[in-house]
Design a protein around this nucleic acid. Structure first.
Lengths: 291, 291
DNA sequence: TATTTTTGTTAAAGCGGTTTAATGATTCCA
DNA sequence: TGGAATCATTAAACCGCTTTAACAAAAATA
């Protein structure tokens, strides 16, 4: 690859001048500009990104950091990603998707600052080491995740035995939903409602209900913690859900990030993206309302 | 941020030694290693990624380059991305998603080599400038896209007027499929089959057919150029489709890329990921077979 | 015409790492 | 016990770009 020195030599100017031609940070006479660009073209020169970043202390790359071993993007992340990418695109930023495992990053030879100007952390654990780390190194971050407890407590105590988690490498959501529902409903016939993660999982639950002769919503209520506005209405009965606005979550997050990066004085902000309850027909009216 | 010099000073060794401690490319006595690491820890030092990349001429970042203005990821890309990410992850590479527009990148101040060791180009046009460009700069690339004509010609001449394209910023696939099908079928009642892009679009077509009183597959055949193995069987009638194996497309592409990057001598390879026809019930048996 | 301003260019000093060549200290082996 | 081989460390050069300070030439001002 040709370097800035080659171009400088070829066009008979100093490297400082070539730099200015490309960065446009200083005015260069038209005549010289053209001579330099011509030389650059014939040498097939392009400024080296890393060298530039090093000197500029800025990469024009934003990071999307996702926790965990063997992570997999789902519908929710897809929308979020699309939102993020759109804004990145508009502002001339590239997006670095970082899914490397903590164990890898903890090895001495892999320790390094991330090559980014700012970062979005998706669903970090409470007290996640990465947060502390970014704050120390002064990299602006935006965290997407659950609000702290006060926002989400309804005064009910969760029963752990009623919670089923889908392992990452598990079968598709659909069959997982089917099998789990079948098991749970058989073991605990007193269950009257199920909250699932996705539409596909709900489809599995519907199938299990049908097999067990349970009618939705009369005997079993189903709701998804997500919403596919095309698919859900086609269910029989139409599936209720929660519209999470993942796309907006992404755009707001990245805009907040850009705002922080440009702000002269840093600050901490909290933004709540509202989720909407979409009631269709898969949930019975709670008994408590008949009191 | 602390630099390597700070750490060197603090631990009383030269920067070369500190570098060796972190890169592990040269053996350093246990005693010195520990002294250096301790100093690094207390200074909160992490090697600078850009400086390292500059000196190493390698970034351990792979690129995923997607064409076009305002691109949006769909189901297909999601699977592909998951495949790519998994392999990246296993090999300790980060993934840079590059969706910047050509117009942006063509401005003088934005011209720069990409900060990557290798790249996947998704669906480039024929003679795409990026291909030529990567080859010139010696960056290994893998192209995901349609094979050249001989592989896909059935000897039929496409009629342009029968082709409908969904604009990027258009309404959801579902309603686009519905409206387009309605229009086309009304305008040209002799149409007996429709090929759509996604399941959602097919759903729209089903709806249009129902409204027009056309029965599937007797009067109208529908097939999707994609396959959602959970959803498609649930259609009435079950939707036929083509399993594109996007996930495998992603993993094979990135593996090919890594292989090329490590190969002592470069070569050009072509890999065909087979697509499978999944016949369910939405297509009539072609008349020609009754002859 | 002398003086100030403006404009364009350059040499040299960073940016924060890695690497090479040289050197000193140990260990190994006969 | 001397010489070779091994190991640990360092100073200095280098990676390719940006930027600062200095300066010369041209233009503007008095």
């Amino acid at each position: 690859m040709a370097t800035i020195d080659d171009v400088a030599k070829a066009s008979g100017v100093s490297k400082g001048t070539v730099s200015s031609v490309f960065s446009k940070k200083r005015s260069i006479s038209k005549e010289v500009t053209e001579r330099v660009l011509a030389a650059a073209r014939s040498l097939n020169y392009r400024p080296n990104y890393w060298a530039r970043s090093l000197a500029n202390r800025s990469t024009r790359i934003l990071g999307l950091n996702i926790r965990g071993e063997s992570f997999k993007f789902g519908q929710f992340h897809l929308s979020l990603l699309n939102g993020v990418l759109r804004i990145c695109y508009e502002h001339g930023y590239r997006l670095l998707v970082n899914t490397l495992s903590p164990s890898y990053l903890n090895q001495v030879e892999n320790i390094a600052s991330d090559p980014i100007d700012g970062e979005i952390l998706l669903d970090p654990m409470e007290g996640d080491a990465r947060i502390e780390d970014r704050l120390r190194s002064g990299i602006p971050i935006v965290i997407i995740g659950r609000p702290p407890e006060p926002y989400e407590k309804a005064g009910l105590v969760p029963k752990k035995e009623l919670l089923v988690c889908k392992p990452q490498q598990e079968a598709p959501s659909h069959s997982f939903g089917y099998r789990s529902a079948l098991e749970m409903l058989t073991a605990s016939p007193q269950i009257t409602a199920i909250i699932v993660d996705t539409d596909m999982m709900a489809l599995g639950v519907y199938k299990a209900a049908e097999q067990l002769g349970l009618s939705i919503p009369e005997q079993l209520s189903v709701i998804a913690f997500s919403d596919n506005s095309v698919l859900s209405p086609e269910f029989t009965p139409p599936l209720s859900g929660v519209r999470l606005n993942a796309d907006r979550l992404g755009t707001e997050a990245i805009q907040l990030l850009l705002e922080q990066m440009n702000a002269s004085e840093k600050s901490a902000k909290r933004v709540l993206i509202p989720a909407e309850l979409v009631i269709r027909g898969s949930c019975a009216v709670p008994m408590i309302m008949h009191k």
